Amino acid sequence: MRTVQITDVDPTRAEDLLAWNALLRDGFNAGREAAWWASDEAVLAQYGDPKPERTSVLLVATLDGRPVGAASASADPGEPAEVEISVLPDARRQGVGTALAEAVRARLRGVAEIVQAETYSEAGKGFATELGLRVGNQEHRLLLDLPIDLEVLRAQHPAPSEVEVRSWTGACPDDVLEDWARLTTQMEEDVPMGDLTRPASRGDVDSVRRGEQRMADQGWILVRSLARLDGVSVGYTEIFVSRHDPEIITQDDTLVDRDHRGHGVGRALKLANLENLMTLEEAGRARWVQTYTALDNAAMLALNRAFGFHTADQLTILEGPVG
């Protein structure tokens, strides 16, 4: 009988941490197109300055002594634990994933009540449902090929004259910080999450600043735009660019206030922030912009596709009790 052994990884040991990250990446991204993963530098920064209230679980699985799988779990107090389980393709269906899942659950008992897990495959979805998780939400992963022709985009998506867009990189300017915190809180309330447990809001000013500092420490450049109508902030968008590995750029949130949708604000924001992005030296080394959109978010899917995004694959997020 082949032997599966599960070992905890000490995140203070850089060599072990990076080997774990590579193993998690190789199993999770096997067979996927242009799949992003956190750089070594970002992982070292993340675990070198952990959130004091967060519980982190890092596991490696060996099969007959060979590393073939890994798992990650993180849980903040009162929130669902986020779990990733990864097995190399040639070691699947030999009990490795099940052993990792059981070990993750054992370490999360008493820490969290709910787990959420992500997969891009039908096999992964089947594995998770066999463990007692249910599908909570599904999203398209979309890619925009780079470079882009800004002149063509400007001609295709003229910004409404009444929409004022302000763009910058890095931390939010002090004079719009409260507006940014308000809109990011609204995004947490509005973003489609299907049947998933919605996390508690963290959109206060202090949490914005803490988040910005952590992102900067991990090597992220924040590319941001804020839209105003009649002097009132009504929408925002942001893009994340890794200084260490800019090949895949992440388009994160885009929000337009409920009372101001359907008037071209989202289009103006996306165009302005892509123009903002293209001013960065790192953008010249990128090949794609990546974003996620819920399957039932027809308006945002249409907007993303109008800007040239195409579907790469589909993310399924599942949820269930820690057990």
Results as ranks from 00 to 15, higher is better:
Arg2His: 14
Val9Asp: 12
Pro11Trp: 05
Ala14Thr: 10
Ala14Val: 08
Asp16Thr: 07
Ala19Tyr: 11
Trp20His: 08
Asn21Gln: 05
Arg25Lys: 15
Trp37Leu: 04
Trp37Gly: 12
Ala38Met: 15
Ser39Asp: 08
Glu41Val: 13
Ala42Ser: 15
Ala45Phe: 04
Gln46Asp: 15
Gly48Arg: 03
Asp49Asn: 12
Pro50Phe: 13
Pro50Glu: 14
Val57His: 00
Thr62Met: 01
Gly69Ile: 06
Ser72Gly: 05
Ser74Thr: 09
Glu79Pro: 09
Pro80Glu: 04
Ala81Leu: 05
Glu84His: 06
Asp90Asn: 08
Arg93Glu: 07
Gly95Ile: 00
Thr98Gln: 13
Leu100Tyr: 09
Ala103Cys: 00
Ala103Ile: 01
Leu108Pro: 07
Val111Lys: 09
Glu113Lys: 07
Lys125Asp: 04
Lys125Ile: 02
Thr129Trp: 00
Glu130Arg: 12
Glu130Thr: 10
Leu131Tyr: 14
Leu131Asn: 13
Arg134Trp: 08
Asp145His: 02
Asp145Cys: 00
Ile148Arg: 08
Val152Asn: 02
Arg154His: 11
Gln156Ile: 01
His157Val: 03
Ala159Phe: 12
Val163Pro: 04
Thr169Gln: 05
Gly170Leu: 03
Ala171Thr: 09
Cys172Asp: 06
Cys172Ile: 11
Asp175His: 05
Leu183His: 13
Thr185Asn: 05
Glu189Tyr: 07
Thr197Lys: 02
Thr197Arg: 03
Thr197Leu: 01
Arg198Val: 06
Arg198Ser: 03
Ala200Tyr: 02
Ala200Glu: 04
Ser201Gly: 11
Arg202Asp: 15
Arg202Val: 14
Val208Met: 11
Glu212Asn: 00
Gln213Cys: 08
Arg214Val: 14
Ala216Pro: 08
Asp217His: 14
Gln218Leu: 03
Arg224Met: 03
Ser225Pro: 11
Ser225Met: 10
Leu226Arg: 03
Leu229Asn: 10
Tyr236Asn: 06
Thr237Ala: 10
Glu238Ile: 13
Phe240Ala: 10
Arg243Ala: 09
Asp245Ala: 15
Thr250Gln: 15
Gln251Cys: 07
Leu255Asn: 06
Asp257Ala: 05
His260Val: 07
Gly266Val: 05
Gly266Asn: 06
Asn273Gln: 11
Leu274Cys: 00
Met278Ile: 04
Leu280Ala: 05
Ala283Gln: 11
Gln290His: 05
Thr293Ser: 08
Ala294Lys: 07
Ala294Gly: 13
Asn297Ala: 03
Leu301Gly: 00
Ala302Leu: 00
Asn304Ile: 03
Asn304Pro: 12
Ala306Val: 05
His310Arg: 12
Leu315Pro: 11
Val322Gln: 07
Gly323Met: 02
